[in-house]
Write a protein that binds this DNA or RNA. Structure first.
Lengths: 261, 261
DNA sequence: TGTAAACGGATATTCGAAAGTTTCGAAACT
DNA sequence: AGTTTCGAAACTTTCGAATATCCGTTTACA
């Protein structure tokens, strides 16, 4: 029998909404328990509940997610493959580090993959594709971008809708591999957005709306340009916030977990 | 017996410096047993010892690799993330399928990533980089490309040197993410090369030599053109030489869909 | 005779404990 | 006092058994 549930707030509710996402080919479906733990842990890493470079001890994790070591190990293994965690032989797991160089690098590749997949998606767009874009944008627009002091649930809900919207844009792209890597990089970027959005007060236009309209108008060039700008603006915003991030309370960027002097 | 053996050399200075700027993700190092099983299994899938769509039963695998269920499960989990295996809840694991569409798709993305990383690698090439290219090419040239009836060990050795050579070419690329995805796609392509090379008798120039010389001459355009041609020729060869790939759009080539008598 | 439910064998999934390393702290020595 | 060595505690890793699930076959029923 499982041990008594940890005193964490009950998290079963928002999980139900994750119905069959239209995700094309990704990691199809894992077994029930492992898959659930994997998703929760990924969300926690992406939202920096589990902070960069944090050591992931099995004892704590086992208590937090209410599962066994073996299951945890399998989920962790997945996260390592996705680049969200690291492991060294005999020294357990830890959350993947973050760095400005890493963010710049992945953003550069993101620009290529996002525009490539978007262009192809527009060329092969269908009615259902347009409908999902309209729908997901509507849901996104109902929520204001999260602020620093918003509760985690609000942040996660916004992040979920944000991802759903961006996924919808490229859903009809014909290249499964491009979509796969795009999705992976999008998640990676989410981690950085989290760290920067909290501190940023930079004003931004309603870029999601502009992109939506350009896409629905089947204007490939304009849509791609807007999307590229969307990404690059976020990067610049992050770069300008780096000093604040370094000294911020989340101790995100530089790490060098020092041992005794 | 007391253990007086000094276990590991001390990490020293390298660890303390902030090295977070590099090395985002590559499955760096796994634990001993799991890592070993993972590598063996990946090699078996890449070389089609484990055939596409083959069901991976734990009983057989446990006997074949001499390890426990848990360890197997963790390795399988890795392979799923790498796209070399698939899993459905409750139905275990199976080798990822192959199809012409998949091969064309991943090859298209490969052209971009290979040329991008190669161009960057040439621009940031060092003496050590050149030396490794010369060395790895030499090792590759010592082995003739494997034929259909060569023993598996010969094939695997050639594949290893082939990968080492191509890795050497792009080693100094500054984009870890590009390198990461390039490596993943390279492995994926290896699977198809295996299936096609066996049947092919198409004559090919010594493309590896041409690429090597162009790279060492720091001729970015020529090197990238040659590399692109290298990839595209392989695709055409696959398309023309393997009837199974042409007709089986989403269908695997040949597989042992074993049924009870 | 065709359809559907139920049984039994086989397989996948999950779990906790044993075995093996690493890390931290304290005692001993220079 | 500073450095090294040794030992205990904590942690990770591995394993095989117990549990849950699925697939093929048989059986009941219309």
């Amino acid at each position: 029998m499982p041990k008594s549930l940890p005193s964490m707030p009950f998290q079963g509710a928002n999980e139900n909404q994750a119905e069959a996402t239209t995700a094309p080919q990704d990691v199809s479906r894992e077994s029930a328990a492992t898959f659930e733990v994997l998703n929760k842990m990924r969300e926690d890493i992406l939202c920096c509940v589990l902070k960069p470079d944090q050591k992931l001890r099995f004892g704590e994790l086992r208590q937090r997610y209410g599962t066994s070591v073996g299951t945890l190990r399998e989920a962790l293994s997945h996260l390592v493959s996705e680049g969200l965690a690291r492991t060294e032989a005999g020294r357990g797991f830890q959350v993947a580090p973050v760095s400005l160089a890493d963010f710049l690098d992945l953003s550069e590749l993101r620009v290529y993959l996002e525009t490539k997949t978007l262009a192809d998606a527009i060329r092969h767009g269908t009615d259902a594709w347009e409908a999902e874009i309209v729908s997901s944008y509507f849901l996104l627009s109902k929520l204001a971008p999260p602020k620093a002091d918003d509760p985690p649930q609000v942040k996660q809900e916004w992040a979920k809708r944000h991802k759903r919207y961006h996924d919808a844009l490229v859903a009809t792209c014909r290249s499964p591999w491009s979509l796969h890597f795009r999705s992976e990089l999008f998640d990676q970027a989410r981690r950085y957005h989290w760290l920067t959005m909290i501190h940023s007060r930079m004003h931004r236009r309603n870029e999601h709306l502009e992109i939506r309209d350009a896409v629905l108008a089947r204007d490939v060039d304009r849509a791609c340009s807007l999307l590229e700008e969307h990404i690059r603006t976020t990067v610049e915003q992050a770069v300008s916030d780096v000093p604040g991030l370094i000294h911020g309370n989340t101790r995100p960027l530089k790490l060098a977990r020092r041992r005794k002097a």
